[in-house]
């Protein structure tokens, strides 16, 4: 069993190892036949050139900006909505709940064409707004948080209300702290999804300066011909932050993805 596991792990890591190996080779060695794992002159040069070029860093910066913005907005609006739906009754509440369930059914892929038309109509094409706002709509997150709030005993809240705290106060200083694990799960899930999202950012912006990392990496080319070591160095550089994050936050991530 242990051998099988080890073999499978090696097979699974091999593509990454090979990419790293290529990224460390001098450009002239990358396409040599027969293939060799160890050549002379292995160095970090390709990574250095990626840094010096700056474009990949700018895309990573965009990814970070968009990822953080989407995550913060999502956590804010979904937790507010979840609290409202869980703890208050208002006219149209059942309509909103029905809309939520219906929204979970809509695959974002079927929206890309009309959404692009809408973004163009609003004059938002090729802006950060176009990258951020449509990605904030995650009805499933409202649902997850609502179920969490539903599970919080009402007595806790009633005590606070008797003390004269308003609804917003209760939400902010009582419910949010209680919901920290659930919110962390929502935040991590949202960030990972946004960071790796390809299709909508690919449609939303054409300006290479606004592209997120996954889009820029495949859309923009080097004018100086294909440089495999450099391309793979860029790919690894952009791919590794999340893997590192996984190592750091393994447990929370597992909860998030299970949720």
């Amino acid at each position: 069993m242990r051998v099988v596991a080890a073999v499978l792990a090696v097979i699974w890591l091999a593509p990454l190892a090979w990419a790293l190996d290529t990224a460390l080779k001098p450009e002239s060695e990358t396409t040599r036949i027969p293939v060799s794992w160890f050549v002379s002159g292995m160095s970090l040069d390709a990574f250095g050139r990626v840094f010096a070029d700056g474009q990949v860093l700018a895309w990573l910066g965009n990814s970070l900006l968009v990822g953080v913005a989407v995550t913060v907005l999502t956590v804010a609006v979904t937790s507010l909505a979840a609290y409202g739906l869980s703890r208050t009754r208002f006219r149209g509440r059942s309509l909103v709940l029905a809309l939520l369930v219906a929204g979970i059914m809509v695959p974002p892929q079927v929206l890309i064409v009309p959404l692009f038309a809408e973004i163009v109509g609003l004059g938002l094409a090729d802006t950060y707004w176009a990258l951020v706002l449509p990605q904030v709509v995650l009805p499933a997150m409202v649902y997850v948080l609502k179920r969490f709030f539903d599970g919080v005993p009402r007595e806790l809240e009633e005590a606070a209300v008797i003390d004269g705290a308003g609804r917003l106060r209760v939400y902010w200083s009582l419910m949010l702290p209680l919901a920290r694990p659930a919110l962390a799960a929502v935040a991590i899930f949202t960030f990972v999804t946004t960071w790796n999202n390809f299709l909508w950012p690919f449609v939303a912006v054409s300006d290479p300066h606004l592209m997120t990392f996954p889009v820029g990496l495949t859309t923009v080319q080097s004018s100086y011909g294909v440089r495999y070591a450099q391309v793979l160095a860029a790919a690894l550089l952009g791919g590794l932050p999340l893997v590192a994050l996984f190592l750091a936050f393994q447990r929370q991530l597992v909860t998030a993805i299970k949720g």
Binding site: P15, N196, F198, F213, P214, L217, G238, G239, F246
Partner: peptide
């Protein structure tokens, strides 16, 4: 691998 963006 699941954490990598599709382009990578």
């Amino acid at each position: 691998p699941y954490l990598l963006p599709v382009s990578v």
